[in-house]
Write a protein that binds this DNA or RNA. Structure first.
Lengths: 200, 200
DNA sequence: ACAAAAACATACTAACTGGTGTTTTTTATA
DNA sequence: TATAAAAAACACCAGTTAGTATGTTTTTGT
């Protein structure tokens, strides 16, 4: 029983370090050696717990990346209250409060989508799954707003959801190219124009 | 004189193959060996023409990637005619007509932004330069539309430009995760809602 | 106390990485 | 046609890669 716990702890240690290094340096640039050096464990320990790098990558996506998106972007949508205000809050106020490191290195999910999203079907599906969850949660919120007349009910909830996600992921990539937040201000102003059109 | 021409031709051959492989397999996954195997020239030939992989990467960005964006997204903005219609045409009608390969592998610029945009200042600047050109051209068109009263003149041209670009790059990444164009239809509908708000 | 199993470490391989130095071939020109 | 210079071929380097084989230590059930 204690062994299982230790095994789980070690896997978490590997997973955490892998996520951080994938995020900072990219998936392909990060070797197993570098990850295990970060854990201060050996390569043998890695291959005891994981079959190969691909399996690790998949677990990083489904366990670490997904959790981040769920906590940061999906759960906040599920609050009670004015649906339009929640939408506005999550998309308008969250971005600028990101820590510097996350502005500089973009969105972990978007980085993976663009680096390996078209390289392996398994990665593609795991990443798509996160996007679909996000999209569906957004649609649920938008449809609630439409029912409650805080969001225009003539508009397709799916279309709004997809466009909001696209722009959000897009700007997180583009922000990497700049050294300050001015480009984020322009994005946020552009987004607020969009939200005006969406508001009931 | 004829020698200079041949040298230029060889560089172009390397550049073309490098761009294609970077696009298909990513920057870091593509080795000099693979590029030169594709040209049927030797590795020595590569190092005769280029200092290192980084220099090649920069030339691919400034000569190949930039040209693609200029031809595909920037020059079409400079047509005469109703500015709003031009905006609508370029963003609404262009995307779905992309060849299958380019839907599957996303935007070459966006791929590079997310893979190496935060790894080297030189890459960062070269990529930012393209985005800035695009942004300024969009702003010029939008401001023309505002003067000609086809685009609402109360809105910030820069904000609209940045939001349009963000969403466009975002969806080109997300599309990689899907196997059909349904997600593009949602994006386009979401975009058309945005354009409604922008229209005079 | 002991055997089995799990957790981890060490040492290694074979292929591949970007890059260098040298030799051979091609080309322009005198 | 001789020659100098450019272009390309070739062999090679040191470092890194994912992955393996085999060892040692720790935990666990009996």
């Amino acid at each position: 029983m204690q062994q299982e716990l230790k095994s789980e702890l070690t896997k978490q240690l590997i997973l955490d370090n892998a996520f951080n290094l994938f995020y900072k340096s990219g998936f392909k640039s990060t070797s197993i050696d570098k990850i295990m050096k970060a854990t201060t464990l050996s390569k043998g320990a890695f291959y005891h717990h994981y079959k190969n790098k691909k399996q690790l990558g998949l677990e990083v996506i489904t366990l670490k990346v997904e959790k981040r998106v769920v906590n940061g972007m999906i759960l906040p949508l599920k609050q009670t209250g004015n649906a339009f205000n929640i939408l506005e809050n999550v998309f308008l106020n969250r971005l600028k409060s990101f820590p510097f490191f996350e502005k500089q290195h973009g969105c972990p999910m978007n980085n993976l989508i663009n680096e390996i999203g078209d390289h392996e079907v398994a990665y593609q599906l795991a990443l798509k799954n996160i996007v679909e969850n996000w999209k569906l949660s957004l649609m649920t919120l938008i449809e609630r707003g439409q029912a409650e007349k805080t969001i225009k009910n003539t508009l397709s909830s799916k279309a709004i959801a997809v466009y909001l996600i696209s722009a959000f992921e897009g700007i997180r990539g583009i922000r990497k190219l700049y050294n300050d937040d001015l480009i984020l201000d322009d994005y946020l102003l552009g987004l607020s124009i969009y939200l005006q059109q969406v508001k009931y």
